[in-house]
Structures are given as C-alpha cells and as structure tokens.
C-alpha cells in the first residue's frame, strides 16, 4: 500500500517536471497545491487527471472533482485504491 504512495510521488515528479523536488521531499499528508504545498497550479491539476487515466485507468470528467482528490498523496492514494 505504501508502495502506491511512493510510486505516486515518482510519477508526479515525472509527469509535472518537478526536477528540483525529490520523492522524499513530498509528505503523504501535506498539501500538494497552493503556496504552502508544492506550489502546483490549475494546469498541474489537469496533468494529474492525465496521470490517473494513463497509469491507473481512472477517468475524471469534471476537474472540480479533482480538487478534493488531489489534495495530498494520502487523498490521491485512497481515491485510487477505492476506484481501481
């Protein structure tokens, strides 16, 4: 299960070109978006949707839905576990 979280961190770094960030810099609970988090923005949220579809075969059709799902690594991982 923790593997999923670690994989997600690596996939996010690759998908979003976060070259200055290492997987260990991303906590499971911390905010991904906003100034307190990784500083991700609305376009990054759309890349998360691409990532979910290409790597996990999960389709999100409303970007608004993504806001809660992409809050942190934990929320993202539990969403994937539920919808796989």
């Amino acid at each position: 299960m923790n593997n999923l979280r670690e994989n997600l961190k690596e996939q996010i770094i690759e998908q979003l070109n976060l070259e200055d960030i290492k997987p260990e810099d991303i906590t499971n609970e911390g905010d991904l978006f906003g100034d307190n988090g990784l500083g991700l923005d609305s376009i990054d949220a759309l890349e998360f949707i691409v990532l979910l579809e290409s790597k996990y075969n999960i389709k999100i059709s409303d970007p608004q839905e993504g806001k809660k799902i992409f809050k942190s690594i934990d929320t993202l991982a539990s969403y994937i576990e539920k919808n796989k």
């Binding site: 979003l16 070109n17 376009i43 990054d44 759309l46 890349e47 691409v50 579809e53 290409s54």
Partner: peptide, 11 residues
C-alpha cells in the same frame, strides 16, 4: 504515441 494530450505542453 503516449496516450492523452498533455495540457501543460499544450499551453
């Protein structure tokens, strides 16, 4: 080739 159109490259 890779799947879905990338929004961050499109912009």
């Amino acid at each position: 080739n890779k799947g879905n159109p990338s929004p961050s490259l499109f912009v």
